[in-house]
Design a protein around this nucleic acid. Structure first.
Lengths: 204, 204
DNA sequence: TTGCTCCTCACGTCACGTGAGGTGGC
DNA sequence: TTGCTCCTCACGTCACGTGAGGTGGC
């Protein structure tokens, strides 16, 4: 009944790589990788050259997993585990990590808004040809650029003619799809879409 | 006054790689990469083997940039540009892309909450030793696991003794830091923190 | 003797950044 | 003749996944 006892033998309290992997959810490949880069070397090898991990190795692994789950890279994990100081360094590291995460969130939100905008504009047309889609995306790429009167007129004209080519039934389907689409959006999304749209319109 | 005229010669309407890079913000290395992978091959080479790009190459590049800016990979960009169909494929691709983005946002938010939790817990102590920090992080790693009465008592006890070792001035500084920290949080963040904390507390 | 686990290479991933070393054009 | 731009390799990035090919232990 030792800690590493899964019935697969070995010394009491030692783990073979496969058992450790199953027990922790870390892949065998990752364990070997951690060994290769010196992040977690098993306490020893059997005669056959098989790695074996001790209880203290397992503890270290749990810490590695915990730090990895905060988004730290292996090098940062190594640093933290090597740091036996007051923890000021660790706190700074985590704060920095938080900054990075915030930035990534902001970037992804921006991306999401652009995608939603494009899909929203596309949703109003039946089956837009690829070149038209590309033009539309290119248009939204010039971020923060207002459309000119002519561009706006051309877009509206294109939309109108596209709509006119639809049968009443197709029009109804389209409207239904749009409703379904809008209903899945949050209030925040809708507000942002209005803001974005307003930002595109000419000022005159 | 041709489109590619920057005073650096060449045929009218053709671009050297460096000029194109400056004009579009795409690095020279990227342009060469796009050439290497067949995404954007320049229309020709000069006698000296230098790439030259024509107006239609530039148009294609703008579309590549636009699609890249939506987060598409080079392979997906290539697909879209090759697709001369009705655009259904492109719309599906963008929807899928939106899904991915949403998932990444969710994952990053989760990460952010964990980091905020850890930093919040750490913020209540002066200079916690690294092993303590690691224990705390490990504690929050067992996600969605409620603390036992004992664990909670031990945590509170540790916090109290840590506080008692502070001078009044240190305590004031700490409080100020916590206030500053909280003020930068949104209402949403605070609510989430309360929720998380409630989820950690024992049910009894 | 048959599976199962383990071992060590070693390539591939994604879109380039960054030298190294060398050659034409104002 | 001197800069500047251009060229082609080719390694490095980050943390492994995925075979290939081979060898000990129940």
């Amino acid at each position: 009944m030792s800690s590493g006892d899964t019935g697969t033998g070995g010394h009491a309290g030692t783990w073979r790589i496969g058992d450790l992997a199953r027990a922790t959810g870390v892949s065998v490949r990752s364990l070997r990788h951690y060994d290769a880069v010196g992040l977690l070397a098993p306490s020893g090898r059997t005669n056959a050259g098989h790695r074996f991990y001790t209880t203290s190795d397992v503890r270290r692994l749990h810490r590695i997993v915990a730090l990895r789950s905060l988004g730290l890279g292996l090098a940062e994990v190594r640093q933290v585990l090597a740091d036996s100081g007051t923890g000021a360094g660790v706190v700074d590291l985590l704060r920095h990590q938080l900054d990075q995460v915030e930035q990534r969130i902001a970037a992804q939100r921006h991306l999401r808004r652009r995608l939603v905008d494009v899909l929203d504009a596309l949703g109003e047309r039946a089956e837009p040809p690829v070149p038209d889609i590309l033009d539309l995306i290119e248009g939204t790429t010039a971020v923060d650029r207002r459309l000119t009167r002519e561009e706006l007129d051309r877009m509206n004209e294109a939309r109108r003619t596209a709509m006119e080519q639809l049968s009443p039934q197709q029009r109804e389907e389209l409207a239904a799809r749009r409703r379904a689409y809008r209903e899945q959006l949050s209030e925040e999304d809708l507000a942002e879409m209005r803001r974005r749209r307003a930002a595109l319109l000419p000022l005159d």
